[in-house]
Amino acid sequence: MDWDKLRVFHAVAEAGSFTHAGEVLNLSQSAVSRQISALEESLNLPLFHRHARGLILTEQGELLYKTAREIFSKLAMTEALLTESRERPQGPLKVTTTVAFGSLWLTPRIKDFLDLYPDIALTMVLYDGELDLAMREADVAIRMMPPRQPDLIQRHLLTMNYNVYASPEYLKKHGVPTTPEDLDNHHIIVYGDDARVSPPVSNVNWLLEAGAQPARPRHPVLEVNNIYGIYRAVKSGLGIAAMPDYLSTEADALVNILPELKGPKVDVYFVYPEELRHSKRITVFRDFLLHKIQESL
């Protein structure tokens, strides 16, 4: 297969149209169309269904796209490793983690990392789902559960506990609960059900059950499918919520109440593909995280 045509095919499949692929490749729409037609003729197969709203891959096109995507992903990873300096870590590094951990714990510490390694071009993707590291959607992930993808290296970073928090304004207005049973008379904010994103722990809404009577089930004042959203709601004075204990050092405006009431533990992992095992950018970022975690304990 002609490499240039395969490159154009990959761009068209990613973009969904000749016009958008041409913008990415800096080619005219007609030049892109000719390359795809020539590739289809050489294979004697249609690769796209063409219609007014765009392009849809045929069954054969899907098969070729899957292979092309793997090839270009591997090439991108190889290029990054080849261009990395032997003397000083440099080049792009894309890191993904959850919205809450990234916003409240990681982002405030990134300046220190970039001061140490100014030649690393860091990108952060804050997302509560899982990006595909094998397909280079990110280089490194900080995850609240062990990786499910094969061929990924994992390093345990820390174990987090869930504690109970409220704002001073809320406690001034509604009083301070002194026992789990007192939560019956308070506004509880919980993690909302969203099938697209896995909750951080299996029993994430344990606060609704702590000290509750079966005959008097608690009902939340608000459900949010994101720990950062829960944090913002608690900070506003809306109610009480269970959140990871890294918030205790980052969210100084909140009060840790019912300290004897502990929720589930969450193990946090540093995860990256096997192909990046020898990347200096990965190594220095991992060591930086471990140092910062030790500082915050």
Rank of each mutant, 00 (worst) to 15 (best):
L261P: 04
Q90N: 15
I188H: 02
I189M: 01
H51K: 11
H278W: 11
E84W: 07
P118R: 09
K5I: 02
T107V: 11
L276W: 08
T58P: 01
E87M: 12
T19L: 10
N203K: 14
V255H: 10
S73D: 09
V95Y: 01
P259L: 00
Q29Y: 03
P147N: 07
A210S: 10
K5E: 13
R148N: 09
V284E: 02
E87H: 12
A195S: 13
A11W: 00
S248Y: 07
V125H: 09
L290H: 05
P220Y: 04
Y162P: 03
A134M: 13
A210H: 11
G61K: 01
M1R: 03
D194T: 11
H156S: 08
L64N: 00
L39R: 04
T58K: 01
P118I: 11
M135A: 10
T179M: 06
P146S: 03
K172W: 05
D184V: 07
V201Q: 07
N226F: 09
A121K: 13
M160N: 08
R286H: 15
S37I: 13
D184H: 15
A15G: 05
G16E: 03
Y272N: 02
N163K: 13
G102E: 00
R277A: 14
E62F: 04
F72V: 06
W206L: 07
P217E: 04
K262R: 14
T249S: 10
Q213G: 06
P89G: 03
S17L: 05
Y65R: 06
A13H: 04
N226H: 13
G91V: 08
A195P: 14
N225F: 13
D193M: 11
P264K: 12
R50E: 11
Q149D: 13
M144P: 07
F288D: 07
T78N: 04
N205H: 12
R7A: 09
E59R: 08
L81A: 05
M1Q: 08
L63M: 10
D119K: 14
G102R: 00
E223T: 10
I230Q: 05
